[in-house]
Design a protein around this nucleic acid. Structure first.
Lengths: 147, 147
DNA sequence: TAAGATTATATCGCAAGCGATACAAATGTA
DNA sequence: TACATTTGTATCGCTTGCGATATAATCTTA
C-alpha cells in the first residue's frame, strides 16, 4: 500500500523473475524426471497421490490449482503409461477416482532422493528458502482460491 | 549446504509454490493484457524491445532465457499481429533483426500503468518484494547461463 | 416430480515451452 | 582455398496451460 515507483524495466517487474525462476528450476528436474519417465506436472500429480491415494480429479485440481481442462488430458496420459487408474465413482457418477498403480507406488522410493538432489543443486540457505516459501504462499493465497 | 531434511510432501517442495505462484501471478495479468490484445510472453518481449529496439532474436533469447524454438513462432505471431518486423541482417544473414512497429511503440504508453496495477493487486510489502527479487535472481543466476 | 440450478469432468482451440535435430551463413584452419 | 567447426535461427513433435464452452449426473425447489 506504500507508494512504490513502478516502471516498465524488465528487471523491475515482479513477474519476470518469478516466471523465469520457475521455468529454470523446473528444468533442473529434467534429468531425474526423465530417468523416471515422467514430466514435471506428472511428478506433481504423483506427489499429491503419494500423500492421498484414491481421490477425485477435483481434489488434485484443488491441490495443484489446476483445472480439468489441464488435468483431464494429463491424467489420461498417465493412465496410458500405467501410472494411475481412472474410475467413475459408483456413488456419484460425476466423480472420477484416481488411484496409483503398483508401478507408481514403487516409484515413490526412487523419488525420495529428488528433493535432496534439488536442494543440493540450488544455492539457497535454509533462511532464504523459508523466506521464499513464505512470500510465495502469500502470493498464492492472495490470488487463487484459498488452498 | 547445511543438513536439511527433505521429504516428498507437496508443500515442502520448493518447486511447487514457485510453479504455482508463477502461474497465478501470470493469470493476474490476464485482463490488462487481453485488453491490449497480447499474451504474457508477448508482453515480456515488448518489455525487452521497449528498452532496446532493433535487436537480434538471440538478444531477446538471452534476456528472457528462452530459446529459438520458443521465440521463433512467438515472434512470427507478433509479426502477424503487426507488433514487430523481422528482417534478415545484411551484414550477417544468420541474424534476424526484430524491430517495433509504430503500433507497438504506441502501446508502451498504455502499458505504463500495468506495473502499478499489479503492485496494487499483490499483497507484498516493499521489503518482501525486495527479498523475493533477491532470492529469485539468485536462483536464476545459479541455473541458467549468466544473465 | 418436472424444470431449473449446480457440480464434476470433458472437449476444443490456441499459445507457449522445450528436447532434439536441421540447416545455412560465417568463421577458423590446415 | 577446400573442409571442418561454430553460430544463429528454424523445424518437428510432444506436453502443458488455459479461456470458453459442452455434457451428464446430481441437487433444489416450487
Amino acid at each position: 500500500m506504500e507508494a512504490q515507483r513502478t516502471s516498465l524495466k524488465l528487471e523491475e517487474q515482479l513477474c519476470f523473475p518469478l516466471y523465469t525462476a520457475s521455468r529454470l528450476v523446473t528444468q533442473c528436474y529434467g534429468p531425474v524426471l526423465t530417468a523416471l519417465g515422467i514430466t514435471y506436472p506428472q511428478y506433481l500429480v504423483l506427489l499429491v497421490l503419494w500423500e492421498n491415494d484414491d481421490v477425485n480429479l477435483s481434489f488434485i485440481a484443488q491441490r495443484l490449482q489446476l483445472q480439468s481442462n489441464t488435468l483431464t488430458p494429463l491424467l489420461k496420459r498417465m493412465q496410458e503409461q500405467g501410472l494411475i487408474t481412472r474410475t467413475r465413482s459408483e456413488s456419484d457418477e460425476r466423480n472420477i477416482v484416481i488411484a496409483l498403480t503398483d508401478k507408481a507406488k514403487n516409484m515413490k522410493q526412487e523419488a525420495e532422493q529428488i528433493p535432496q538432489y534439488l536442494a543440493d543443486k540450488l544455492p539457497l540457505s535454509l533462511d532464504e528458502a523459508r523466506q521464499l516459501y513464505s512470500i510465495l504462499y502469500k502470493l498464492i493465497n492472495s490470488t487463487g482460491a484459498a488452498s
